[in-house]
Design a protein around this nucleic acid. Structure first.
Lengths: 352, 352
DNA sequence: TTTATTAAATGGAACGTTCCAATAAATCAA
DNA sequence: TTGATTTATTGGAACGTTCCATTTAATAAA
């Protein structure tokens, strides 16, 4: 039961027979106090069941040891990994990250951001919700709180960004498909309100152009960025006069949807229709067939974002370099050669 | 650039030509101030770029509006859903949940808990890390902070618990397998340091007993609670003299592992070996074949936990009723009848 | 008009820390 | 011994709020 009025440093002081200042010093691990005094104080701390009041401390101290990470979709394993990567580095720096979910809702995001600010966070790592208005972060800039964007960027914003090289990833994946002999390609899923979409689509387009794919043979179908979206995209594409034989998907979830839809039609992903995903979530490896995907190392990006944040806090600046993370194509079993190609033999892929 | 010394209510007061108390009242939405004064103040708040300092406020106020949720594995979509459920109800109650991940590490958990306490949270919802010592929450009890456990419980603890009915879920699933004609059953994955394990295993055992399965035909293999663990369990079981024909898995991840391992051996999950999962994560539905699983409604449990927490905070108590959430078996395609059974025809399952 | 009542605004103390300047005690140099 | 220096400890002010008790202004009742 217990729980009398919360214990403060004064209670500790009384218990240990020293002054509040001494207690404070012990709490901060100052070397100024005599070791014996320190143990005495520490015992008292234990005895009175003291819990440190960081709010009170922050009133005097320059800044707090908490940073907020604001994530647009916690249920996406991809973002969860990002979070885990960040936590790794923050933990070893003795700072505690609090995660908040915006569920892809700008209004919710506004609330979360406000609340985190009020809590006095030292910095913010944000994967902005879709539809975030450019002005949404002006308050934070005004307040001088360091912010870094992770995975997603906002148009016309001076906030540093940590993202994978989406353009290159899409280029690599597309080139892989072309190398397998595919000539009628599709880009499935995503929508143009996402900058990531333009980046990935850009890589796809450039690859098509460079490698001599007729623009009319590069089909683009927007759609939701989940399994359902993928299924819909496939259906739409197969209903066309000359359907594609391979698709690069906006992300792995879309790719899974495409594979599901193929199976439903009695087609075998990989053999009958090649599909490449993006993000390389853990599931990709365990799928049937295993999904070829562009690995973005989200945990690594999370670590990177955390490091940048720590740097910003230490140098008390609100600016930092962007960081574009390397990507690489992980070739698995979801894209075989184009069966209908017979004029030129399929290039030997790096499948293993 | 901006960001002069942080603005306080005094700055607002000066700007608006009122007293700090008036500003405070406006901030709290008190009806005592004249509307015109209020707008004047609100304008000043905007102008000076004020951000509320909740730490300072909490120094006087009874308690804060933040509650912490401490989760043992954020990368498990199951827990992410739990989090999402909680957020839904907290949001509408105007309280902000901060999520922290312990990565199944008791030491990390200790740190996280400490940090949250120092931050002055109003309450804590915890899914304790594996290997948590019973004493780990004594400090919290002493401090009188309301705590509820979600999904997992601790031995000999008086902290209220919100969990699914694991025993019943396992019973249902086992009965389903028996109904399909299986007589040599296995329970795959999990380990005895988890109370959940004992609950689920208990349901399995009771069903076997009640439904006349020879105890020697009820095989129990512990293992990691992920895909790898599932694969290992299957291998071990098939190496036995009289291998089982069906398995109830500790959770869906284990079940996915089992299915993967079956495929690798050229066996068809469902037809050649029946497998049932537990938790019914979203993937279960989309797997190939779709996984029969015990649905636990994690989002619902999250909502429930949040409600209980709110009640506890309001009635300033640290006690509450446990809540055992209903479960139901979602029958899909991963368990057909036992092919080797021919003495008695398989009971018609509730497959749809 | 005077007085009582209500409405609006205010000053001051308190919340639990940190940190500076000051003191007290111990050690050293002369 | 005395003063200077170092080592430990301490009191007080400050941080940005809230809330109570007051004051002031406006309105109603007499």
């Amino acid at each position: 039961m217990a729980s009398r009025a919360k214990a403060t440093i004064f209670d500790i002081a009384r218990e240990a027979g020293v002054s509040k200042s001494t207690v404070s010093l012990v709490l901060q691990g100052s070397g100024l106090i005599r070791p014996e005094t320190a143990v005495k104080v520490r015992k008292a701390i234990e005895d009175v069941g003291y819990v440190y009041n960081r709010g009170a401390a922050n009133l005097r101290k320059a800044h707090s040891n908490v940073i907020g990470m604001v994530i647009n979709d916690l249920t996406n394993p991809f973002f969860a990994e990002l979070a885990v990567g960040m936590e790794r580095v923050f933990q070893s720096a003795g700072i505690v990250p609090f995660i908040a979910n915006t569920a892809e809702n700008p209004v919710r995001q506004e609330e979360v951001l406000k609340s985190l600010m009020e809590q006095g966070v030292a910095g913010l790592i944000v994967s902005p919700a879709r539809g975030t208005t450019p002005g949404a972060f002006r308050r934070l800039e005004m307040a001088g709180v360091p912010v870094v964007f992770a995975m997603r960027r906002l148009p016309e914003s001076r906030i540093p960004v940590i993202t994978p090289d989406n353009h290159r990833g899409a280029y690599l994946a597309t080139a892989h498909l072309v190398g397998k002999g595919h000539r009628r390609l599709a880009f499935f899923g995503g929508s143009s309100d996402l900058i990531v979409y333009h980046e990935r689509l850009g890589g796809f387009r450039e690859a098509c152009e460079t490698l001599g794919i007729d623009p009319r043979d590069a089909l683009i179908i927007e759609g939701e960025t989940n399994r359902k979206g993928g299924m819909a995209c496939l259906e739409t594409s197969l209903a066309m006069a000359e359907p594609p034989t391979a698709a690069l998907c906006f992300n792995d979830a879309v790719a899974f949807g495409v594979m599901l839809a193929l199976r439903k039609r009695g087609l075998e992903p990989g053999a009958d229709f090649a599909v490449v995903g993006f993000d390389d979530v853990v599931e990709a490896e365990h799928y049937m067939p295993a999904l070829t995907s562009v690995a973005v190392d989200s945990a690594g990006l999370g670590e990177r974002a955390a490091h940048v944040m720590i740097k910003m806090i230490q140098s008390r600046t609100t600016r930092a370099e962007d960081h574009i993370g390397a990507v690489n194509l992980v070739v698995r079993e979801s894209c075989g050669p184009d069966r209908r190609t017979r004029n030129r033999p399929a290039a030997t892929g790096a499948a293993r």
